[in-house]
Amino acid sequence: MKLPRQERNKMALTVEHVSYIYDPDAPLSHKALDDISLTIPEGQFIGVIGHTGSGKSTLMQHLNGLVKATSGHIYYGGRDIDARDYDKKELRSKVGLVFQYPEHQLFEVDVFSDVCFGPKNLGLERGEVERRAREALAKVGVPEELYDQSPFDLSGGQKRRVAIAGVLAMQPEILILDEPTAGLDPKGRREILDQIRQLQTQTHITILLVSHSMDDVAEYVDRIIVMNGGKIVYDDIPRKIFKCYRELEKMGLGAPQVTYILHTLKENGLPVDTDITTIQEAADSIMQALDSFRITGP
């Protein structure tokens, strides 16, 4: 689905010089966000990476108007979201935010009604609410036999899917996921991330994936924003970001394990491409390098 240029600009979320100070009166007040500027075009899959306390979660809460910036402006569809006449409720239906450990927000007696909570709050008709809930649950891969179960009886991974569906059911145009894999086992992590990627390729929804693990995002996203100390340090495509892996290490982040393996191989004389970010590409590159070795001989 291609939109005319003007329309696309209208959809973009723009952050201009946003700063945020926690509790300015307290003895230990500090700047959680320091002069942040960025634009989020429609349909992009963005990874937001930062250490604990780098301000990434705070920034995400600004994007749907839950936290008001101390200074600076945020525009959605070309309009300032802090303007007095701006409908915050509508903004929240367009910019869906899934919090960290979203399963802690479940409260209804069964899975289905919990997912209905969001669309119901939008004031939609019953039929539409249920249609959206069904669609959202299908998108995150929750089987129908679980619809009538209590959300508290589900496994950790399933609870999380239900919680994500609760936000998806509002049919947001931008979906923000704050550490969606926190506390899951490797299998659950992979499943959730694959599901998110599938969602993105199928619906072309704009996704911001917040994480502190490079391995989580490297394979999936079009663009990475690296945050440190309330500032944006890097904002680029993944392979360019991982070139600076030494600097990333200083921030306690590092690059994906693939990058390290490739660099070590190259240092030891194997001519591999070190800019690669996904495991599949890396495997291909290593095989190629090995083949060239075999032909020329050591």
Binding site: L66, K89, S93, F99, M170
Partner: peptide
Amino acid sequence: KIMKAQIARGAD
């Protein structure tokens, strides 16, 4: 946190 999460889901 829970309040924010529910507000994000349109709670009033």
